[in-house]
Write a protein that binds this DNA or RNA. Sequence first.
DNA 1: CGTAAGATCTCT
DNA 2: GAGATCTTACGT
Length: 186
Amino acid sequence: MKTRNRLPRKFYARATEEVARDLLGKHLVHVDGGIERRARIVEVEAYIGAHDLASHSSKGVTPRTSIMYGPPGHAYVYLIYGMHHCMNVVTEPEGNGAAVLLRAVEPVANIEGNTRGPGLLCRALGIDKRFNGHDLLSEDFYIAAPPREEAFSIVTRPRIGVAYAGAWAEAPLRFYIEGNGFVSKK
DNA sequence: CGTAAGATCTCT
DNA sequence: GAGATCTTACGT
């Protein structure tokens, strides 16, 4: 059990924007058939609740969004456009319908292929719908603070691909590590 | 039950 | 710039 520095439940049970920013630089770990795949989170987006029209949770509690409304520290994974998986981390206390989308990661160990984009990072880390609802305080799938955290600046931008959300499309809820080459878009 | 649209990616 | 491909939500 190599769950060193694994983030505690309370890390996720906070305001979604704070969690999103604090996730930058952390390591996403998936022990995939005995192989520990590890990547550094470099780009995220916050989906802050039912009032956020870009968020799936704005539809209310449905079979799909119930994970977002559930307890923090769990994975919300869904299939988009019939072929790509997107991974989110559920935030805030239970009942809030908020999560952070992981948009890009930087390979650290046992990662093959492109990781610059939400669909691509899921493919590279072996994440699919089976992980929807998976607890991130588990032994095989979790997020941890890196052994040695490097200093970086955070860039704030509007979210990608949410033009349908009206005024919420311009909300500055996308965060990435300044100058990092693995960020999906500038 | 039919259908429209989607938190994307790849190739042209 | 368009096509791939399928789940979800919603209207009939």
